[in-house]
Design a protein around this nucleic acid. Structure first.
Length: 504
RNA sequence: GCGGUAGUAGCUCAGUUGGCAGAGCGGCGGCUUCCCAAGCCGCAGGUCGCGGGUUCGAACCCCGUCUACCGCUCCA
């Protein structure tokens, strides 16, 4: 495990040293869990997005794209459930260092009192023949006393939750004598609210509802545009809407480099299907998405499905594609069967009909949805950490090479005159000018050739094109492959076509 | 948020008891070189994470703080 920690640190250091990822605001001491993508990182990231967009939008005639705004009407987040779900009051026990949801602690306490009532009922049932449970519950003194406690607590608890009275919740927990199940003490911190949505203010929304949120997921932008795209695109079920965009979550703890950031980017596709067909399509997307990953040439054993046992309230099936990161298998992509929950919620909150008219059945209904959702940054980390390789060569020397899938590499080729004289740089410039129209290419003529190869290895450039004296005679160049270091000669005129072939 | 560990040049790291802030690699300008880093010459690059305190004097001691990594916790 220590080895993996060391490896992860080296990967992070490499990402910085070679212009892939920098800590945000670094000259001001940085900003926790925010990162910037540097000159090579932005290329790799863009290539990942393009690979996804092509696979989803370009290769499916029934999937279209969308770029919805980050700002959205605040009611959307009430409809989606995020306003409530992202507002948990949390409290820590200072002795056990464990954190709990304050509302859950109180609910558990209420449950304990209910258990006591049930015990009384069971005792009585054994004692009396012709036991009338309803009568007993309504008349037994001890039960009534317990029930009164429950009613009191529930009433005050509900009022506090509605009023967002955090100090009151703490007082209630202390008053009820709730102890930490681990430490057994009542040594609690104050109750704090962790709202996982970032709020900001918009100038003029009616009725003082001027708080708006930075979206915590891109999916809702798709749902609220369902009708627009269905109508204007003349879409027929099943069809999908794909979107790539930033999302923001005020994570309590954001950690592990770019794995969990406060500002991150998602690639989401919502696939609308006929009710009853959702599980068929769920399986289809499960396989299709896994295929997308393994098509990159990354070993399949780095991936596994993790099917959810406990489903969210809106889902009737869910799985994660997990990837073997340097710190273990973690979620890379989620595939969820979200039923018609989201569209139904938006129907209810907006008062608009979000329905599909099915010409075959001659009736309309709210479509079901299969969601595929992958984090761009997590994909970046998966590809990057998988590519990072330290090799010892036959002659005992070492090299660090990023074995990136060629189509994702920041630069596709480097043009390198073998020496900086004899007219070779001039030819190199011509080759560079020819290739740059179709590919990201680098030209470099400083330092010994071996050193330049190593530099290109370190940023994952799959091909190095070397100009030598023979080039002047027959217009051929050496192509050197990154992973094998094998070399072969090609006519300059064939370079573009050959590169295209290799990058498909 | 709690605990542990760390922060000195772009990177990796030395820095003795408190006494002129260093090395290797890398970068830049040259030289050399016809195929895989560590040949030669030269140059640039630092408020020792930040703030305060102790001291004649602080990279070093004390306090605070920020950031990162690991563990706990959280993750519709």
């Amino acid at each position: 495990m220590a080895n993996n920690e060391e490896l992860f640190k080296q990967i992070i250091a490499h990402a910085k040293e070679y212009g892939f990822i920098f800590p945000s605001s670094e000259i001001y001491d940085g900003l926790s869990a925010v990162y910037d993508y540097g000159q090579n990182g932005v290329e790799l990231k863009n290539n990942i997005k393009q690979y996804w967009w092509k696979a989803m939008v370009q290769y499916h005639d029934n999937i279209v794209g969308l770029d919805s705004a980050i700002f959205m009407h605040p009611t959307i987040w009430k409809a989606s459930g995020h306003v409530d779900a992202f507002n948990d009051p949390l409290i820590d026990n200072k002795d056990s260092k464990k954190r709990y949801r304050a509302d859950v602690l109180i609910e558990d306490h209420i449950q304990k009192i209910e258990d006591k009532i049930n015990k009384e009922v069971e005792k009585a049932r054994k004692r009396f023949e012709n036991f009338d449970e309803k009568m007993f519950r309504e008349t037994n003194g001890r039960v009534l006393q317990y029930q009164k406690q429950i009613d009191d607590i529930t009433e005050r608890f509900a009022a506090m939750m509605n009023a967002n009275d955090l100090a009151g919740l703490k007082a209630l927990i202390e008053e009820l004598g709730i102890v930490c199940p681990i430490s057994g003490t009542r040594n609690w911190t104050d109750v704090r609210q962790f709202n996982l949505m970032f709020a900001t203010k918009l100038g003029s929304v009616s009725d003082g509802a001027d708080t708006i949120y930075l979206r915590p997921e891109t999916a809702q932008g798709i749902f609220v545009n369902f009708l627009n795209i269905y109508k204007t695109g003349r879409m027929k079920l099943p069809f999908g809407i794909a979107q790539i965009g930033k999302a923001f979550r005020n994570e309590i703890v954001a950690r592990q480099f770019i794995f969990r950031m406060r500002e991150f980017e998602q690639m989401e596709m919502q696939f609308f299907v006929k009710p009853g067909e959702e599980l068929k399509w769920f399986d289809y997307w499960k396989q299709t998405r896994l295929q997308w990953h393994t098509d990159l040439g990354i070993a399949p054993e780095n991936y596994r499905f993790h099917d959810h046992e406990k489903l969210a309230h809106y889902a009737n099936a869910a799985t994660d594609i997990e990837f073997k990161f340097p710190f273990g298998f973690k979620e890379l992509e989620g595939i969820h069967s979200r039923t018609n929950f989201d569209l139904s919620q938006h129907e209810q909150y907006s008062g608009k009909k979000l329905r599909y008219f099915d010409p075959e059945l001659n009736e309309n209904y709210v479509p079901y949805v299969i969601e595929t959702s992958i984090g761009v940054d997590r994909m970046f980390l998966a590809v990057f950490s998988n590519a990072y390789t330290e090799e010892t060569l036959e002659d005992g020397s070492t090299r660090v090479v990023l074995k990136l899938p060629a189509k994702l590499a920041p630069y596709k080729a480097a043009v390198l005159p073998l020496v900086k004289k004899d007219g070779l740089p001039e030819i190199g410039q011509e080759v560079f000018d020819m290739l740059k129209k179709d590919f990201m290419v680098q030209y470099e003529d400083k330092d010994a050739i071996g050193r330049r190869y190593r530099r290109q290895d370190a940023i994952g450039t799959p091909f190095c094109i070397t100009i030598d004296n023979q080039t002047k005679e027959d217009n051929t160049v050496t192509v050197r492959e990154r992973d094998t270091m094998a070399q072969y000669r090609l006519p300059i005129a064939d370079l573009t076509v050959e590169l295209m072939k290799k990058l498909r």
